[in-house]
Design a binder for these strands. Structure first.
Lengths: 239, 239
DNA sequence: TTTTCTGACTGGTATAGACAACTAGTCATA
DNA sequence: TATGACTAGTTGTCTATACCAGTCAGAAAA
């Protein structure tokens, strides 16, 4: 169950093992999980290592500790604390789905008027155009088109396929500051219908996002078409 | 600075000390804070104790760790930037439209299972059901149904027609704490189509909002159907 | 001059053990 | 029948130590 020779940290393996039991329903809400000492004995790791695993799961909302009593499976799976800027990947993970992404096309093109304005560059300047299908548990959820100015970031297909755009941005030393998003309901057009595997005229959620760096420069413009029947956008707001 | 005789945990004291330096601006964003070993020597505590303090601050978004480099003050400033809880009225005003509201029906009814659960009351308890059409510049924008537990608030038609629900809530001495919203795209049904003056099957935006008081009790459940062709939902997010 | 390597720094992972604080049940006693 | 002391379990806090894994600058070698 726990492989001490694996390059994966022990605490991470324990985390996954616990998460699996929860996701599988073996441990339901309010179930008390084994004590830290028990884990420690069973897996032959120190109690501190077990604590690290459990702490992470507590932070992620999977577990709740009660001093003197034990550690219990949380009632509800983390709903969504989408006051922050989360990527599709993070978003889906937090909802318990397996996120994936299929690259449809990746190319350089030039910014026409509207795009140039949004990205605050000159008309005709080079931009990347990245078209992707976003999947959750292998079901198409959204069709996404991203535009990024070429002069901002060096990108190639493998960056997009393997890493995320945001990790690339961080590697380049940029820090994302804020974003504005607009959401609207619409009806799917033919092109999208095919990719999203829905009928033409089905309900879709159009999300446009513009992301800004701390330098004040726009990083990207993202147009997403989400399936209306499968995707709900959640927001928590504090007054 | 650190009081070993205090009943407050050492890691907590260290946490507070670091937070203070950040809040006071002594350590600005991107500043590297002392290394774990340094803290350990200065405060005469073990490195693990320092790590616990720093870990908590990393989880809270105050700090960022970079392996091999150090620990840095986050740029994102935890600041819970709230895109406030705005009512339809405030929302439309800020967009430059003349908001109005037409009351369709106002009645007492009893909460069925799903509603009771959401409002955290017993099944069969009395609730107000308020149905309204929301207009902007006299054009129908949304069809809204609001549910409020009767035992929470005394309401009558004139309250709704003249004032807003929220001002009534404030008068009663309640304070709104937060809300969760979900947005999804859908297709209009017959009943809504007529009221919103759109064709059946047109795109609509379904917004469900649940509002909570500072007491932790749910105040209301709101189901809104917005015209997809006229309404866009905007969000600003800070990372 | 350029390249390679080394060492000293950073945080990351893991161990073993100690004692404190809290919970819930048991059991003897007033 | 209560009450209070004890006990065995839990998580919480903390120490001291060890080694691993990136990062970076400067010394050594080419």
């Amino acid at each position: 169950m726990i492989d001490k020779t694996s390059p994966m940290p022990l605490y991470f393996q324990i985390e996954e093992a616990i998460k699996q039991k929860i996701d599988k329903g073996e441990w339901e809400a309010e179930t008390m999980i084994p004590s830290e000492r028990e884990f420690s004995l069973n897996y032959e790791v120190s109690r501190m290592t077990v604590r690290q695993a459990i702490n992470n799961l507590v932070n992620d909302g999977y577990l709740t500790r009660r001093k003197g009593k034990g550690t219990f499976v949380s009632a509800k799976k983390i709903e969504q604390k989408l006051l922050g800027l989360t990527s599709f990947t993070e978003d889906m993970k937090s909802r318990g789905y397996k996120p994936a992404s299929r690259l449809i096309s990746f190319q350089k093109t030039t910014a026409e008027n509207r795009l140039a304005k949004a990205l605050e560059i000159e008309e005709g300047q080079e931009i990347y155009e990245i078209k992707r299908v976003r999947l959750a548990n292998d079901i198409p959820m959204a069709f996404e088109t991203t535009y990024v100015p070429v002069d901002l970031l060096e990108l190639n297909e493998s960056h997009i396929k393997e890493g995320s755009l945001y990790s690339e941005v961080e590697n380049a030393g940029f820090v994302i500051d804020y974003a504005t998003q607009s959401l609207e309901a619409s009806i799917s057009r033919e092109a999208e219908s095919e990719i999203l595997e829905i009928t033409k005229g089905a309900a879709v959620l159009l999300i446009k996002r513009q992301t800004y760096l701390t330098t004040g420069r726009p990083l990207e413009l993202v147009h997403s078409v989400y399936r209306g029947d499968r995707y709900k956008f959640m927001i928590d707001m504090k007054r």
